[in-house]
Nucleic acid binder design. Structure first.
Lengths: 227, 227
DNA sequence: CCAAAAGTGTTGAAACTACACCCATGG
DNA sequence: CCATGGGTGTAGTTTCAACACTTTTGG
């Protein structure tokens, strides 16, 4: 069945910039394209928006279809509409950015043609996806400093050092250990667990979890997180 | 001529939230709709995206066509894609937000069915435009606190009191005069002019202008403006 | 006992808040 | 001369940055 309109319309897609963290590098999830154009190039997961779904729904659907990921932190990023961003025809793309925890991240690797790449060395990408990725990175840095979202990239139980390494990897700066701990704990958003993290030949580390309820309460009172 | 596609496509529009400041209230520019649906209701200026223009270009074109405004500060806000946001058919809208100086603002009033409303008391709006406006307001508050964009809502030459009133109107809080002046001048982004602003039966006020070049230089060095 | 990461306090500098009076003008 | 908004400085408090050593573990 064909669809006919009085005026021409751009095609509308969603693309997702999916970030993960392996303890060392910030990573992006990419899909190897099976079809032309840009056949065999790596690209952001995404696809066409259906008429009966919202943009958010389209992003989640495509993400699940192409990478198997569900229940991730997902947020609209920016809409890209350069006239020639797709060589075939006019395509406008609503970009999303997603954060996934390491547990989910490994699942994604099973997906057919998906793989993780350190953001620093992301191969040449299809379309304008390099630009989209750059925009997403900028936004992530901003968000990390102003909202407690780092936890979305860590396991539910994590150590302060893991959290610090994440901040350092994303922001690209070294942070002072004592000041970092003071500040983070000062917000009183982390609960110390009765467990420790043992690994390697050194003192075990205290595990914490993030308390989202506490954060919501604080946010309502106009509280501003700032790393 | 008709246009035919293999899969159905949403229509794609842009909508602009245009803010102005009259010295007292923050205002939005609205258009009275001439056609159904929502005939005679007030709505955000906007319209369909053409195939040969970027989204930014579409926003600027529509703005000029419907309000006569040109050369305004314009930035993409968010894309709205609820399935039933337009009762006729699926329409996805890329929302923009714009800041205009008082001089330009008066021009807009001449436009056929355009008028300014205090944001607080914006009449019932068409479609989901109230939601778009709310999102834009949130963004404006955020932006005003983190980037020096307030000047886009003031005349090229302005007094510190005008600037402070703008901040107070947008943020909805009273600010301490001395601290405000100290902070703003401390950034060294304003140049004191040799003119004063005389008005009313009191001491004339020093006029300033914003120095965009200075700001660009500072920004490159990782400087963060914060009111 | 050695290597490796976890954990912990203090001090000086800078930034923030609160606050009250004199100044220049027009009417 | 009076009403109106313009303009200015300080002191106490809080926040920030810099900085080095001890602890616990596994091998």
């Amino acid at each position: 069945m064909l669809h006919t309109y009085k005026y021409p319309r751009p095609a509308l897609t969603v693309d997702c910039v999916v970030f993960g963290f392996d303890g060392g590098d910030l990573q992006v999830l990419l899909i190897r394209r099976a079809l032309e154009p840009f056949k065999n190039r790596w690209a952001l997961p995404g696809g066409f928006v259906h008429l009966d779904e919202t943009l958010d729904e389209a992003a989640r659907r495509e993400l699940e279809e192409e990478t198997g990921l569900r229940e991730v932190f997902l947020e609209q990023l920016h809409t890209f509409g350069a006239v020639d961003r797709d060589p075939r025809e006019r395509v406008v793309s609503v970009a999303y950015f997603a954060l996934v925890k390491p547990s989910a991240a490994t699942a994604a690797t099973d997906a057919a043609e998906a793989d993780w790449f350190p953001v620093a060395s992301a191969a040449p990408l299809a379309f304008d996806h390099a630009e989209i990725l750059a925009t997403a990175l900028e936004r992530l840095r901003d968000k990390l400093r102003r909202e407690p979202v780092g936890f979305e990239l860590l396991p539910p139980k994590f150590t302060l050092s893991q959290l610090q390494r994440l901040y350092e990897a994303v922001l690209g700066t070294a942070l002072d250990k004592r000041n970092f701990r003071k500040k983070v704990l000062g917000y009183d958003l982390l609960v110390a667990l009765k467990e420790t993290h043992r690994e390697g030949a050194h003192r075990p580390a205290q595990l914490f979890r993030f308390d989202p309820a506490k954060y919501r309460r604080l946010k309502k009172k106009g509280f501003l997180f700032e790393l």
